[in-house]
């Protein structure tokens, strides 16, 4: 039973990635004018010769698709090269897309995972706290603040932060991954510099994101606090701290898992705007550069990488959820009570 759940989940993740690869393949061909005409015009500028064979070879070099081959062969070639990690070559940087991505991915993952942990950490703690003091001034105030902060788009806060703390006060850097003076590696200076550079993007996500999680957690906790098993546990003399963690916390956090999975996608997607504002060369930054420069191979490569990262994130979250909630992954629709 349990094994089949994991197998099923894995198959679904693989299938999703596969579907996205197919979508990118279709989209590349749909691009107005398409890569063919783009390459052709570039070549025309360079040499004036418009040799069809040469163009097709070049298009294949960039995009792994040879326009003169039958569709299914193109599709097959595209899938195999992506599966081998070959995402084509960036036209703008004239570098293999996979190399650019390999350098960029860790930074985006770093910013996103820290943001995710902080958003949910702060949201869950505050939500549980306000649930315990429901109706108090602290509760009402914090609820209002949560709603307000949640109504600010993250990029608006990002612009304000980069304007105030970056340009005007000069407290934080306005671009880059790390300072120029640190040596790459596991040394203190490097880590400190990385955190220093990532601080503002992380803050933009966390400050605008924790509010809704706090509200959700508050609602869940209030509901759980009204459950019979809380009353029975109190009568059994279970210490309040244990009730708060094992009973209220656990049962209130579980339903938030879905929200967390959605947040993974939301934050990774948001990296496009965020990294552009902070000039932070992660995956999103390159994707935006690629769009500005009509660099289709890079654009699609970045899209594919972001999607795969999100699918993986959700996959991991899903599997851990099965570990934490005993009711998950065992059919669900068979209720034995």
């Amino acid at each position: 039973m349990i094994n089949s759940y994991y197998v099923q989940r894995t198959a679904q993740a693989i299938f999703t990635v596969f579907a996205v690869i197919t979508i990118t393949f279709v989209l590349i061909r749909q691009i107005p004018g398409g890569p063919t005409s783009y390459v052709r015009s570039q070549l025309a500028q360079q040499s004036g010769s418009v040799d069809m064979e040469q163009i097709n070879t070049l298009v294949e070099a960039y995009t792994n698709v040879r326009p003169d081959e039958p569709l299914y062969v193109q599709y097959f070639n595209y899938i195999t090269s992506v599966a081998q990690g070959d995402l084509g070559t960036s036209m703008y940087y004239s570098t293999p897309v996979s190399e650019i991505m390999a350098a960029a991915v860790p930074w985006t993952v770093f910013v996103m995972s820290v943001s995710l942990v902080l958003t949910f950490g702060i949201g869950i703690s505050l939500g549980a706290l306000t649930a315990y003091v429901e109706g108090s001034r602290f509760d009402v105030g914090l609820t209002l603040i949560s709603i307000f902060l949640n109504s600010i788009p993250y990029y608006v806060l990002a612009i304000i932060l980069v304007y105030a703390l970056g340009y005007q006060l000069d407290w934080f850097p306005i671009g880059g991954l790390v300072g120029g003076d640190v040596t790459v590696g596991l040394n203190l200076g490097f880590i400190a510099s990385a955190i220093y550079h990532a601080a503002l993007p992380i803050a933009s996500f966390v400050v605008t994101g924790f509010g809704i999680q706090a509200l959700t957690m508050r609602g869940n906790s209030i509901r759980v606090l009204g459950e019979d098993y809380i009353r029975v546990a109190r009568l059994r003399g279970i210490p309040p701290s244990e009730i708060a963690l094992q009973y209220v916390g656990r049962n209130a956090i579980l339903p938030m898992y879905t929200g967390m999975m959605i947040s993974i996608g939301f934050m990774f997607g948001g990296s496009i705007i965020m990294e552009e504002i902070f000039a932070y060369p992660g995956v999103g930054y390159y994707m935006f550069r690629a769009i500005s420069a009509s660099d289709y191979p890079l654009m699609m490569g970045a899209f594919l990488i972001i999607t795969i990262a999100v699918v993986l994130g959700i996959f991991v979250a899903d599997l851990t959820y099965g570990k934490i909630d005993p009711r998950a992954g065992q059919g669900g629709n068979r209720e034995s009570y």
Partner: peptide, 21 residues
């Protein structure tokens, strides 16, 4: 199955790619 696939594709990048096209 269709919904699940759509669900896991991050929204903003997809929208951007389609908007560009």
């Amino acid at each position: 199955m269709f919904t699940d696939i759509l669900l896991t594709i991050p929204g903003l990048p997809l929208v951007i790619v389609i908007a560009v096209i």
